[in-house]
Simulated assay, not measured.
Amino acid sequence: MNPAARTQATIDLVDAILDAARTGGAAADQIAKRFFAARRYAGSKDRRAVRTLAYDAVRRFGPVPATARSAIVALADADPELAATFDGSSYGPAPITADEPRAEPGLAPAWLVDAFHAAGLDDSELAALLDRAPLDLRVNRLRAERTEVLAELGGDPAPDLPDAIRLPADTLPDSEILRDGRAEVQDFGSQIVSLATCAEPGGFAIDLCAGGGGKTLAIAAQMAGEGRILATDTDRPRLSRLAPRAARAGVTIAEPRLLDPGKESAMLDDVAGQADWVMVDAPCSGTGTWRRNPEARWRLTPDRLDRVVATQARLLDVAAGLTAPTGTITYVVCSLLDDEGRGQVDAFLARNAGWRALPLALPRGRVHGPGMRLTPASDSTDGFFVARLGRG
């Protein structure tokens, strides 16, 4: 592909990402995979150049651009080499005109920026939400030692996280160590909030929103493969990933159970009041994961936020019914919005007499209301809120 063709391909890719954001379609990384699969003629350098420019555009423009061209044109205004590719050639974009629309730079829609400021996040914290994320691994202590994985893959061991290794952002997660279960791709923040369960060997844990099972496997490692974990979710495709991942990781104590949305309590009646630890990694806005999914801020609306907040509240109440009298709930969202974090937990405590927030001792993060908050700028992790709740 020549430079002009690369620019046109970038516009086409960003248009597909925009359309998916508006319609609730696939995530940007999946769209990019499909995009290049349909363009086998694009070489590795072409794919890298198109992907890099596309993600630059996604990161730069927080207010949703009207079109992909308006975003790339705005980038070209500050980049003469890019502007020169708008040459009107057979495979290139039409020339830029002075009066055509330009996308508006910014972190996010104004209502979201206001919500972040209300949560006590300053501009430096917000800017870090769109940095490129590194590749983090969690060494599976059931299968390997960290020194072994470091010797094969390299990377930087986290001094405060005994199972964690960090690799550069451009590292491709393709290694025999990942395929045979000796390590899992997992952000440092996700590893840290998993520690908040304080799970121990021999107990009974429920991962209420298990998804593909990342935190289930982390909890299983804490439990040294002894005890029982019931891993539940309402998303069949995501939950179906757990069994092969658990087999690779040598985890035999995790039992997947598919639930119907809105019927979680009834379908878990056989374990009501029995769990030592319930993990609620609740569906959320994902504002803490913009480093990996910057187009997610194009998907979020006030109405969608209201819906996920209502779901979170319901799941917390479900979790309360599953815990033993001495059991605990670990509530986690990969969001930095107070409606989903401290406000959600404050509301739970207000409507559930006898419950209280328990102190947390985590290697990173700062106290934020009844829990702790981790941010990219302060903790070099994805953004999370986590709280641990118990009776008494």
Rank of each mutant, 00 (worst) to 15 (best):
R69C: 02
S70E: 06
S70V: 00
S70D: 09
A71V: 10
A71D: 07
A71N: 03
I72W: 02
I72Y: 03
A74C: 05
A74K: 00
L75T: 01
L75I: 04
A76I: 09
D77G: 14
D77C: 12
D77Y: 01
A78K: 15
D79T: 13
D79P: 00
E81Y: 04
E81L: 09
L82E: 09
A83E: 08
T85R: 02
T85C: 14
F86V: 07
S89Q: 03
S89E: 03
S89W: 01
S90W: 02
S90V: 14
Y91I: 07
G92S: 11
G92T: 05
P93G: 11
P93H: 03
P93A: 08
A94F: 03
A94K: 07
I96H: 04
T97K: 09
T97Q: 12
T97Y: 04
A98C: 05
A98R: 15
A98H: 12
D99M: 11
D99F: 14
E100I: 04
E100R: 05
P101Y: 00
P101G: 14
R102V: 10
R102H: 12
R102D: 09
R102Y: 10
E104L: 07
E104D: 10
P105F: 09
P105S: 14
G106E: 06
L107V: 11
L107A: 08
L107R: 00
L107E: 07
A108V: 15
A108P: 07
A108I: 12
A108N: 04
P109W: 00
P109T: 05
P109M: 02
W111A: 01
W111V: 01
